[in-house]
């Protein structure tokens, strides 16, 4: 089975949504998915933060247009995409332990239900080396 490895550096609404769409496509294809959440990304996974993410990484002046369009098009939230992908295929989400600490997350219970474990950078690189597809968002 093909394996997708994703380095999720960004914790912004636009890039989280992109990650969610890509991940659910991988789920439809029965791929195994491993996501390594780095630096800024970890903020979105702190328990209670999932609905607080409203900044864009790119073209921040278009935020209103972007969020309204997602709503009009009935697009799932980034969190829903991640949940759907986890229901459909083998998706593991790991938080880089340094990234967690930056946003006040020391232990697994500090993070939301999507997160499987905390990890170190070595594991991310090994996963990227072994994956069929690697992307950095």
């Amino acid at each position: 089975m093909a394996k997708l490895c994703m380095g999720l550096f960004s914790g912004s609404l636009d890039k989280l949504t992109a990650a969610g769409v890509i991940m659910s496509g991988a789920a439809a294809d029965d791929m195994d998915v491993e996501v390594f959440v780095l630096l800024q990304g970890a903020r979105a996974f702190i328990k209670g933060n999932e609905n607080k993410i409203d900044n864009l990484a790119e073209a921040s002046h278009l935020k209103g247009e972007f969020t309204q369009a997602l709503k009009d098009l009935n697009v799932s939230t980034w969190y829903e995409f991640f949940e759907m992908a986890k229901e459909m295929t083998n998706v593991k989400i790991y938080i880089c332990s340094l990234a967690g600490k930056i946003w006040g997350g020391e232990k697994l219970e500090d993070f939301n239900g999507l997160v499987d474990d905390l990890c170190g950078i070595g594991e991310y690189l090994t996963a990227a080396e072994e994956a069929d597809i690697h992307m950095f968002i």
Binding site: A27, N74, V75
Partner: peptide
């Protein structure tokens, strides 16, 4: 019909 990409693909898969 009420969903945009990747909605239809996910519905098909399910």
């Amino acid at each position: 019909r009420g969903t945009a990409c990747p909605g239809p693909l996910l519905e098909a898969k399910k």
